[in-house]
Nucleic acid binder design. Structure first.
Lengths: 224, 224, 224, 224
DNA sequence: TATGAATGAGGGTTCATTCAT
DNA sequence: TATGAATGAACCCTCATTCAT
């Protein structure tokens, strides 16, 4: 099961300390910041260059093209994700605990608000084209398959109801990935609380146990 | 409770029959199609004009500006949403049935794939600025409050567990609104099935009832 | 034989009167002037726009792209050439007279110095790429085939020595097309004299000895 | 008469053996290859540096500037030309034999296809500016004067008709120098054949009728 | 209503060249 | 010699928008 994971362990596993970060990395992070705030199309290479304290031509010394910069940002974000989420939970034997922990870490990553690359991956899902897009999609699909097979495993073990693993996976992803659209760091709900309550809600369900629900909740009874 | 709803019933409540549609409406829908496919920034007024079989200058007789066009598209989408989802379920007395039916209709609206305006509202959530943005945000917030108060009602009635209504609302919205990013009309999961299984999964929960889950499922036991 | 010619008679057959010329035409000619003087690569769209008393964006209202502008210039030049050279001599029955007249007209066209498009066709022979290049090459090849078949005809009729028609064609073309590289309007040799002496020189040696040629071969007799 | 020639015998008279070539020479030849293929303006210093397996900055240790590099290439090409054409025929006493041999060698040089510098001299005739241009033009003019005085000599001796020596010179040059625009190494006409037939064609008609020419004018007799 | 023409601003990108190391 | 980094200038091109007709 672990063999599914981490197909592409990448160069420098996401150490973002300002001091030790390479020039490349600092450019990536600066660009990510801007693109995250304004969107890819609305962020100009001029703005990125300015933020990096470089001229436009100087920026091009480090970056092949704007699109390739986005690709690098996304790959960088994927590295961070793989390191902080996937590789941390892959070895958990119990599939339910694995999924819950995965959701929790995913939420924390998104709500912590550093690592804008993650947000960019989520929002600019249709911005890349061609080979770059395929590359990122492959890495995303990797995560989807990890979740799906974990759900399948949990079902097989009788740990969760017999739901469609795909529907479960995309519900999971939707709840988690949508967060960047509404979450506010200083808002009512702190990220840490969300990281506890959302998995609880998602896996525990909403309806009260034992009690007969309306006729539309028939499927739930199946597993009773 | 219904009083919350439909604060702004708008001009022509979303009848999209080709023949009867006004010029305005046809432009809106054509533009929505393009913007949905290529994104707001990557869609030029030229492309929109071409698709409408107008010259660029001709288009400007019907549209105040590109940004205002987006605003109109979003308001139009909101009208459709209000009409096909909110107003259809607002009168359901049972809050759980109301929420389930709401989710179902929302999913059907997104997966049916007509009404690209809906997708645009979801994706371009940060494209508008200033007053236009506020206006749309108000209508979105309207939906959020509707869900939240329904969840609260359900909890008060003891119909669902005592979860945070906000967390429930955003989990609901995430699962549903994320669909446009992965759903394929000809894919494995038809929209109709998704509209049944996702609410079941969301409200019924995943974990098997009655059975002692691992220590990490403590919250679930709370409500047992 | 005439059927070989003028495969593509084009829209407005090269009337260049300043007053009646369309906007398109004036832009073409202005651009041709600049490109002829400075070369295609060294001429910027800005310069062309300035010379047309337009902004760069205004210029792009009339022109698809810089490369397409070059294509149009070349096609325009080809139109002029077809009209002023090919179509004027195609009907001459005697192949030698036909070729001599053709060379004469070609020389006059090049030395007259108006119609910079001709020079551009000659110099920028490898600037266009892809389909545009093929298109122009086809029109050039048309001329080559016309010459070659005329030479072949002259040989068959015993009017000139049995030389390789291809070598004759390219010698002809070289002598004539090279002119733009050295000719100076105010130089020692006026264009009109060149248009007389070069054909004489070129054909004087090709015609069969001793035998009375037509009246157009008068210069050859001088040395008999 | 030989005194006209070879005013500037240059450093290493064009030995291009890969092994013995100096660094300078190899850079010149590599750059020439690229410029010949893509044109001066379309060839970047980056491309040249890459082809030389140097960095851009490294290249600048060997080359003063891009324009000066072109100047060096052209001078190098002129050296080759002087060595392989001019200096080989300058001592031929008979002016007609001298000119024919000159044309033959010139054609062979162009068609052999090595020595791209020659092609560059021909094509980029207007690329250099200022002093560099004057320098190359002087060397070109040297060749022109050599041809012109040879023609004059031939006329004075009664070896050819009384044509304008300038017109003869430029016809000669046109026929020969145009070759690079159409010649294909694997085409219908091999370079060796061209080197025989073109002089025959060109001179065959210039020589005085009836009178016995030298043995090299054999082809002309064929048609007598 | 409609349009051809025009534009200011800015887009991403490339270039020959320099210089501290 | 060599190089990585940097730059000013210029490149072609696109955009949303306006306006006389």
């Amino acid at each position: 099961m672990t063999s599914i994971l981490m197909s592409k362990p990448r160069k420098q596993p996401a150490i973002k300390a300002q001091g030790t970060a390479s020039r490349q990395q600092r450019i990536l992070e600066t660009a990510a910041q801007l693109i995250c705030r304004n969107g890819y199309e609305k962020t100009s290479m001029q703005q990125i260059a300015d933020a990096c304290e470089l001229t436009k031509a100087g920026l091009y010394h480090h970056v092949r093209s704007k699109e390739h910069l986005l690709l690098e940002i996304m790959n960088y974000g994927m590295d961070i994700f793989d390191e902080q989420v996937l590789s941390q939970v892959a070895s958990i034997a119990d599939p339910v605990r694995r999924l819950k922990e995965c959701m929790k870490r995913n939420i924390l990553l998104v709500t912590r608000g550093r690592d804008k690359e993650i947000t960019i991956i989520l929002h600019e899902h249709a911005t890349l084209t061609g080979a770059s897009r395929s590359q990122i999609n492959a890495r995303k699909k990797h995560y989807v398959r990890f979740l799906e097979s974990s759900f399948r495993e949990a079902i097989r073990d009788g740990r969760i109801r017999r739901v469609d693993p795909k529907v479960a996976t995309f519900s999971f992803l939707g709840a988690v990935n949508w967060i960047y659209k509404w979450f506010q760091p200083d808002g009512e709900i702190p990220g840490e609380r969300l990281a506890v309550e959302m998995p609880d809600l998602f896996f525990g369900g909403l309806e009260v146990r034992g009690q007969a629900a309306g006729p539309e909740s028939a499927p739930a009874r199946r597993s009773a």
